[in-house]
Amino acid sequence: MSDLFKYIVQIILVCLVTLGVHIMVLAFMDKPLFDNQIITAYAGNVALAVLIVMGLLKVPETLQNSRGFLFLLGSFLKFGFFFLAFYSNFKVDGAIQRIEFFAFFIPYAAALVMETKCLIDRLSK
């Protein structure tokens, strides 16, 4: 339990720090701060990362070898999340701008790094 708690705290901390830097960069560039569903992107990615980490830690003994597969499944889940919640909103003006892309990609990458770290820890045990 403590392991899981540690990972969740780590994920939330890292994502909060990333969010802070992200907002600061946006403020520095004189762009609207909380546009493009940035909060939803962070919250959704953190929630999914927590879900995947829980899956990685609580996986039954018989499926121990398939943890990497679970990780890949989690990535597909995130793509599904992106297409359901973001794609249509981003595509309203015809194309995905760079700022819109980063609004989703930065929390995605941050959560992915944390998940990968968790997976590596598990695999190295």
Partner: peptide, 15 residues
């Protein structure tokens, strides 16, 4: 391939 991947396989990918 991914489903039958063992621990070693994933270790070689991620670490």
């Amino acid at each position: 391939t991914q489903f039958s991947g063992k621990k070693e396989y994933w270790k070689h990918i991620f670490w």
